[in-house]
């Protein structure tokens, strides 16, 4: 008698776990997120295996974004922006979106300063990585987490 109840409880547990597993697959199956590893790989490709320094990038991102459809992303990179010393390009990446790339910008010394601002979509709470490429071939990066209340990837 005792055994039978055990059996019943196990099968119920099993049934529940199967349901949970099915749910998990359902969620994971729809959008495959980029993840931190893909962003790290992307940085490696862009930087050509060189070491990436920190600092001299100021990020202006909200801590909490209520609507993932339009999240402000602004950055500025400290640089004199002269013909000999300027920021060549800046790449913005997000590790929780279906694809890691958000946008990339090419700068020229004629701009006098290195900053830009735009709006991006974020699917969920995730890290934003900004990678700056200097004209001498060195790289700098900065990272910040943005909490997203409602994701913005369509459905």
């Amino acid at each position: 008698m005792k055994q039978t109840t055990n059996l019943v409880s196990i099968s119920r547990r099993k049934a529940l776990s199967m349901l949970a597993a099915a749910g998990a697959i359902g969620f994971a199956g729809v959008p495959a997120y980029a993840g931190g590893a893909e962003v790290a790989a992307k940085i490696k490709t862009l930087a050509g295996g060189k070491s990436v320094g920190e600092g001299s990038i100021i990020l202006d991102l909200p801590e909490i974004a209520e609507n993932g459809n339009a999240v402000k992303v602004a950055f500025s990179v400290e640089s004199p922006m002269t013909a000999n010393n300027y920021v060549k390009a800046v790449h913005v990446m997000a590790d929780g979106n279906p694809t890691p790339d958000v946008a990339s910008f090419n700068f020229t010394p004629a701009m006098g300063a290195c900053s830009a601002s735009t709006r991006m979509r974020l699917a969920k709470t995730q890290n934003i990585v900004v990678l700056a490429e200097m004209n001498d071939g060195s790289f700098k990066k900065a990272q910040q987490t943005v909490k997203v209340t409602i994701g913005g990837c369509g459905g």
Binding site: N69, A70, V71, A74, A94, N97, T99, D101, V102, A103, S104, F105, N106, F107, T108, A110, M111, G112, A113, C114, S115, A116, S117, T118, R119, M120, R121, L122, G152
Partner: peptide, 19 residues
């Protein structure tokens, strides 16, 4: 003077500001 390459992660009605 300035180029921006957008990916699908950029919001509708793309806005850009630069110096």
């Amino acid at each position: 003077v300035f180029v921006a390459n957008f990916e699908p992660a950029v919001s509708a009605n793309p806005y850009i500001a630069f110096p």
